[in-house]
Amino acid sequence: MKPKRKVWRGIVTALLLIWTFFPIYWMISLAIRGNEELTSALSFFPKSFTFEHFRMLFVKHHFEQALWNSFIVTAISLIIALIVGLACSYILVRVRFRFGLRKVSFFWILLVRVLPPIAFAMPLYFIFNYLQLSETRLPIIVAHLLINLPLIIWFTMTSIDSLAQGIEESAQIDGASEWQIYSHIILPQIYPSIAAVGMLSFMASWNEYLYAVIFIQKRDLFTLPLLLSTMNSEQELTQWGQIGAGGIISMIPVLIFVIFAQRYLIAGLSSGGVKE
């Protein structure tokens, strides 16, 4: 019985891996093929091997600059969003407000999340223009906050809400300050959620295109998705090699972040020994 079950598990896992990885394999295989191969029928396995596409990205498109820009924008907006978002969601869950602030905030946050970005993009553009900030990184950072803050607040509210309040109470009786309760009791318990929502926000920022394309007007500030998008246009042949290579490189930081966040997923689980 047992070995049979193991075999089935193995088969299912293998199928799932094929389903998951085939497109990614294809991206890699496009990135390492020579150009002659890319303009005709593509064989399952590459017949040529080259790093030329990767090299071209840096030589011709200044990919390193775009990487840096994406990193700055993503990191700053994520850090701000996490700090203010977590604080906000803790209070919204735990504190009783007189004027229904919780209800109003909750609905407003939801509304911001639901409104389509193409409706938001233009007014924000005009506002930043008016403030003469349109040539800086500020608009794009603010746009990312707009995308990620609702998600973070909303998502962590659910997690905090499901925590038992007894520990907080006894901590306070023991003389812990509110900040200590928040930072030493609440946050460690929801590490997995923070890691998960951090991951989602990081990816949303890293891949954000719609705002970036109209808020970023200086070549020096171009982010990765902006650069990658110019490699395909109707009147020219698509640069498959460079697209694949660009995709691979832009995945690496996300992957590093995910692996980093995973540690917190685990850390949260082992330190979560506060269960009743």
Binding site: V213, K218, R219, S229, T230, N232, S233, E234
Partner: peptide, 9 residues
């Protein structure tokens, strides 16, 4: 300074 965008953008 040349900024390249996709056509619709």
């Amino acid at each position: 300074e040349v900024s390249g965008y996709e056509a619709a953008d």
